[in-house]
Amino acid sequence: MKVTYAKAIGDALKEEMRRDDKVLLFGEDVAQFGNIFGITRGMLEEFGPKRIRNTPIAETAMVGAAIGSAETGMRPVLELMYSDFALVCFSEIFHCVAKWRYMHGPEYKLPLVIRNASGSSNGAGPEHSNCVESLFMHAPGLTIVTPSCAYDAKGLLKSAIRSDNPVLFCEPKLMYQQKQEIDDEVYNSDYTIPLGVADVKVSGSDITLIAVGLMVPRAIAAAEKLAAEGISVEVIDPRTIAPLDKETIYASIRKTHHVAIVEESNLTAGIGAEFAALFQKEMYDELDGPVERIAALDVPIAYNMDAEHYSIPDVDDICRVLRTMH
């Protein structure tokens, strides 16, 4: 069957809520309205107003409510609508969610998920187009997940909901309507994808390309294009940004000796900055060239769509950098 990324997210939520009555969902406009992208449509009718709750626009309290309900026995899924709004409750995520267990002791567990619609979406403008993974990578204690296709989204969200650790779950908005062919039996099999495990999306031997979220399909397209030019690219999707599956990535670097990172967010202090520092330190002897970073230009994402598209890496931008590495 053809499954959209949005449907996969919705199905994961429904399946987990049917499986475990401790799972709750709350956020702005998730009940009658069914979320601004339609993802939670029908859930209020199925699960009722105690488990599917609209919230006022009160993000700091929503994050707090996720903490308080999680530690006392629930498994809340909090929807923050746009990822950008994670910054209005930055302290509650950075100080409270991430540190709560460490600073209160082993008795405290936070089985909670914070979902957010992430990144650019054709004209959403400077405050509705951000990716926040790199901001929260600086908070030890958080698990950060960004799936890049419907199959992964469903399996990873189910694992996130079942995890006893807090998960920041980023859903690139431009992926919501992307369709993927998935075998019916597999899709309906209650499969999960473990957190902290990367996926090799394309096998190759010349260059390792680490791609995150929306950049994964672009990285795959770039790999196909470069294959025709005789450059073999291995595309790896970490899926879980933190903690990182270094084993899978390092096995690839040992094979290719060249590595690049592509992400949708700004270059400076981005995901690639951290990964590059890590790779040059831990894989120095394996690298035959500098670690390349491909990322959005260091400007806010403009409302003007041409400017938006120009500032975010596309297939040609990726190819251009990778050719220089070969």
Binding site: A61, A65, G68, E71
Partner: peptide
């Protein structure tokens, strides 16, 4: 404090934990 006594924790950034009490009430 301990969770088994009902203590839900505290944020040193005063007030950031207000929602935590609401979450415990949600349970």
């Amino acid at each position: 404090g301990r969770l088994q006594d009902g203590v839900v924790g505290f944020s040193g950034s005063l007030g950031c934990d207000a929602g935590v009490a609401v979450g415990a009430a949600l349970t």
